[in-house]
Every structure is written in structure tokens, then in C-alpha cells.
Amino acid sequence: MIPGTFEYHRPKSVAEAAKLLRKSKDGRVLAGGHSLLPMMKLRMTEPSALIDLGAIAALRGIKKTGTKLVIGAMTTQHELLASALVAKNLPILHETAILIADPQVRYVGTIGGNVANGDPGNDMPAVMMALDATYKIAGPTKARVVKARAFYKGSYETALKAGEIVTAIEIPVPGKHGFAYEKLKRKVGDYATAAAAVLITLKAGKIAACAIALTNLAPTPLLAEAAAAALVGRAPDDAAISAAVAAARKIMDPANDTRGTPAYRKSVGGIYVERAIKRAIARAAG
């Protein structure tokens, strides 16, 4: 449980960080370290350099600009939980963050690290897909943006190219909506056996808009588009919900691990989708 040797840098700006990253052969940026360091201790990854983003003030903070909430990549899970702006505009982030790990991890684990990590067990990516968030990325040449919905390519494979750094996450603030993040885990501090994020808007007794995304039910987080489509335009009744659950189950492809067999995880995955839909509907109506 001792990592290999590596250089350690602590730059003051994104530009400097990008430069260091470019210079190093296989360097990695270090955020909270709660995913990266365990892997280094197991020597599953052995980067030659760590570029610690901890001293870059520009990467921190939460602000509202127009209809968007912009969250700096180095904002910790704890800071999300403590933020009144988040509570008011994007309460689903609260509901999700409180289910991540434990207080110790949340004090240092960051939102940027959580979304950039690429582990299907991370909770924030599915939520970001449901919210249709955009990741702002700084790179060796020029800055760019990538939609959360287009970011996840495979287990630990993302749209991020070598030398790129996620600087912020931009999330459109939805109007009056219902939301829920339902997560089944074995214990505090565990990754999801299955989890679902749901956002719903009701209009005149019908579901006007809906987004559903799934955590740890496939090699990547999944946007369950057919499941959402099964609800939109319909009254929030059992038939519609069952159709949505069936559609969500269809795209699930969970791993066989100590959390259970794929059959089990698909089965409970559907149940958690159902619970999240029902809770989101109740909130949307309330």
C-alpha cells in the first residue's frame, strides 16, 4: 500500500498547471486524492508526477450567472453541502453529495475529481447527465467545453484528452421541478449497488419534462432517454412509471461483483428508478 515514486507540484494557476501537465510524461492532476491516491497505493496507476490543483484559487467557488450555476472544479463535496446557492437552485446536488462516502472524504473530495474520475461508481456524473451540465475544460492549446452527456466513454475512459483539466461545471438551473437521487449501498462509505437520478416537471397534471440517469449500472453512467420519454406527455400513473422502469432496465449492464449478480442489480436498479420517479413526482406536485 505504498505508491511508487513521483514528482509533486503545486502550481498557483491553471495555465501553470497545464504547462506542468504537458511537460510531464504521464503526470496526473491531483484534486482531493480520494480516488487517485488509493489507486496509486495499490500501484494500479503509477504517474510520474502529481500536479496538485489545491492552491489554484480560481478553481474554487460556486456562483450564479444568469440562469446557470457555475461550480469550480476544486469545490469540495462538503462545500456543496454547505452552500445556500446549491440548496436553493439545485437541491439534487445536496441529496447526492450527502450519500457520497463519509464526512472525512467529503471534506477533501472535489466535484471536479468526482466527475473527471470516470469510475462508474461515482455518483455525480449521472446527476450531471440528468441536469445536462457542461464541463469547462482548459487544455494545452485552448479551452473547450464538453457536455456531461457526451463525456463518459467507458470505465475510466472520458472525453478528457491528455493534458486537459476540468476547470468548472456549468449547470442550467431548472425551473420548478421535482427531483430525487435514490441510492442503494451496503454501508456508509460504499459505492452504489444501484442508483438513479430523476428530474421531473409537471404541467397541468402531466409530465412535461423528465430526465433520468443511472449510476453504477453499466461501465459508464447512463442517461436513460427511453425511460424519460416513456413518461413525458403522460399522467404520472403506475402504467407510465412501469413503462419507464422497463425501459431503464433495458439499458442496464451492471458488473458482477461483491455487490451482487447482474440479475440482482438490474432488478434493484429498476426498483430504485421507480422510487426516484415517485419521489420526484411527489416533489414536483408539492
Binding site: 442503494l184 451496503r186 449497488t193 455487490r259 451482487g260 449478480t261 440479475a263 440482482y264 442489480r265 432488478s267 434493484v268
Partner: peptide
């Protein structure tokens, strides 16, 4: 008797 095995038990009894 973890969650998934309880479910397997239920399944083998025809409850799922």
C-alpha cells in the same frame, strides 16, 4: 445474508 443473497433466496422461492 447480504442484500443480494436475500434477493436470491426470495427469487428461488418464486417471489421475484
Amino acid at each position: 445474508h447480504d442484500y443480494w443473497r436475500n434477493w436470491e433466496a426470495a427469487k428461488s422461492l418464486g417471489l421475484i
